[in-house]
Computed example of a mutant assay.
Amino acid sequence: MPGYKFVKSSYSGGNAGQECVEVARNIPRSVAVRDSKWPDGPLLVLAPAAWDTFMAGLRRQP
């Protein structure tokens, strides 16, 4: 991983075993997402515009 600095989602609870994601936005032109329970597992790396579109879609959900 090229220096990603992951931050746990503010919607993630503090209890172990919960479904949580971590997001890294510190590398230019990329947003990396990973499962907080599997920090050495695979990453999903998106363009910032794709991440912004994804987040906008989540905000529109009832």
Rank of each mutant, 00 (worst) to 15 (best):
G17N: 10
R25K: 08
K37Q: 03
P42I: 06
S12Y: 04
P39A: 03
V33W: 15
V45L: 08
P48N: 13
Y11N: 08
R34L: 07
A56N: 09
F6D: 01
Y4C: 12
P42V: 11
R29Q: 10
W38E: 07
S30I: 00
P48C: 13
L58C: 13
V31S: 04
Q61S: 04
L44W: 10
S36G: 05
M1L: 11
G57Q: 09
G57C: 04
Q18R: 01
M1H: 12
Y4V: 01
R25Y: 04
S9D: 04
L46Q: 03
L44S: 06
R60P: 00
K8D: 14
P39S: 05
V45I: 12
M55P: 00
M1G: 15
L58P: 08
S30R: 01
Q18S: 06
Q61N: 04
M55C: 13
F6T: 10
G14T: 11
C20N: 06
R29F: 11
R25L: 04
A16H: 04
C20S: 08
W51N: 12
K37G: 00
V31G: 06
K37S: 02
F6C: 06
V33A: 11
A47F: 14
L43F: 13
F6Q: 11
G14V: 07
S30N: 05
Y11Q: 10
V45T: 05
A24L: 10
P62R: 00
A50G: 13
E22C: 01
F6N: 07
V23A: 05
A24I: 03
M1Y: 11
F54N: 06
E19F: 13
V21R: 15
S36H: 03
D52V: 13
K8Y: 04
G14W: 13
P48E: 15
L44C: 09
A50S: 12
S9A: 04
L58N: 09
A24S: 08
R60I: 01
R29A: 07
A16S: 10
F6H: 08
S30G: 03
G41N: 01
K5A: 15
A24F: 12
V45Y: 08
Y4I: 00
P28A: 04
P42A: 14
F54K: 01
G3I: 01
E22M: 03
L46A: 06
V31K: 00
M55V: 14
P39C: 05
T53N: 15
P42D: 12
A16I: 00
R29D: 03
K8Q: 07
T53R: 15
P48Q: 15
P39K: 09
K5L: 06
T53H: 15
G17Q: 10
E22W: 02
